[in-house]
Design a protein around this nucleic acid. Structure first.
Lengths: 252, 252
DNA sequence: CGCTTCGTTGAACAGCTTCAAACCTTGTGG
DNA sequence: CCACAAGGTTTGAAGCTGTTCAACGAAGCG
């Protein structure tokens, strides 16, 4: 909890990737010297987004990639009826916007889950830099590929795991990502609602609520609304695994 | 049904992307002239893969991207217990291998579903060309992005749809892709087993079998083992949509 | 302070899975 | 070439997980 003034000062200070706390998680990881300076010059600050504010919508022209600097966002797709499927939650240091590379239009939407600040990488400028800096090009490909791999995780979770395993995996993944941010990975403050978690996992709210209660009874978690403390990380890890290998898991 | 001799001749003839029947579906789409020639030079022919043969395995070093020229493959991830989740089926003109870009190791596996032939794009050579040819670079990014979007479809199918809607969507998608190949999109010859379909959709074989029977009773399909004829494409399309918007579809 | 949204809990229900068995196809070795 | 084994597919019956419907308490917000 910092005062608004402090946050503002930090943002002023950090108008350079090399001095950003997220440096090693972000796109510039693995880039140095002049190349980093050139990337620096392409980064535009984006005003903070309030909770519920959209970073981009489906059909928006592709203008930039975005890095979360603080806060959290969700990305989702919506069908004609307005039904949504959440694709991912994005924490500080994570990049979003790749969905628009294919058609130069966004095919998903990004919404802030809480007040968030964003780095904007205008793609036109980024392309100029990448054509001169092969290292950045490779780095960009690596980051997209990471996104592909991350979606594989999501698919496995949905396709092969039971509800309780899914929630355990989801929490463990969140905890791991918070630890990478040098934060405590055992006491989480969930930025998303139960509805969001349910949607992300392909379940309904009631199931999520019941599972939180059950895992609290088991002594794995201490749950208080958005605040989740992991009391037994070891138990949580075992809950991620399916113990009864079901027939649907065999490879053809 | 061509004689082996004819196929061989075609392969001889087609040692150039510009003369390949898959030209407009494949990586070179949007590339022309000298640039295409340079790409041409990087393409290596890969011997045909027999049914069940692996193109790459988890942990294999990243050496190349691959384009399916004929046949079909499946990609999947496997957990410690050997349980698998199929990520995608790959038809002619489609590219695979992007999973390895992030870590320079494959994190998934690719297996031929039937005798297939493959174009190999050694990544080292490809990188040389992309650094000189910005158009190819952009094209490559677009193709990866398409993969991301395609995985979104898979996630929505798994997360928001019921079993029958899933199978209908799966079949419609296959039909569309076969039509893009200038083949008949109404009489499919499924290269994958019922087990594969079930695994891909996060269901069990029995469910798939029952759904095929049910959709045949409804007059939508005519099913005979691997051969599926779509009698009522209009009905199939309606079966893809959820008519009862369930609570789990709302966006938080 | 009242309203709306979020979260929790209970009870009944439904859809998909599990278990079981039979049939059909494919391939292999005698 | 046939018999048999092995695996893929289909169908039935029972069971369980997660959903649906309903109701209520708590928190957030104008």
């Amino acid at each position: 909890m910092e005062t608004p003034a402090t946050v503002f000062d930090l943002n002023q200070l950090r108008r350079s990737c090399s001095s950003c706390a997220l440096y090693e998680l972000c796109l510039p990881a693995g880039i140095a010297g002049d190349d980093l300076d050139r990337l620096d010059a392409t980064v535009k600050d984006k005003r903070a987004l309030d909770r519920g504010a959209m970073l981009y919508r489906e059909g928006d022209p592709f203008e930039a990639l975005y890095v979360v600097r603080s806060g959290a966002l969700k990305t989702f797709v919506q069908n004609e009826a307005g039904d949504a499927q959440i694709l991912a939650f994005h924490l500080p240091g994570e990049i979003l916007g790749f969905d628009a590379l294919a058609s130069n239009l966004h095919v998903s939407q990004a919404e802030a889950l809480e007040r968030s600040s964003i780095c904007e990488l205008p793609y036109a400028k980024l392309q100029q830099v990448t054509s001169d800096v092969p290292a950045l090009h490779r780095q960009l490909m690596r980051v997209i590929s990471r996104e592909v791999v991350e979606e594989h995780r999501h698919l496995v979770m949905m396709g092969r795991q039971q509800a309780q395993e899914q929630l355990a995996t989801f929490l463990k993944n969140l905890a791991d990502r918070y630890e990478r941010l040098h934060r405590d990975g055992t006491s989480l403050n969930l930025p998303m609602s139960r509805y969001d978690i349910a949607n992300y996992l392909g379940l309904v709210v009631e199931t999520i609520s019941r599972l939180f209660s059950r895992m609290e009874e088991m002594g794995v978690l201490e749950v208080n609304r958005k605040s989740v403390r992991i009391l037994r990380p070891d138990l949580l890890a075992t809950l991620c695994r399916t113990d009864a290998p079901s027939r649907r898991n065999d490879v053809g």
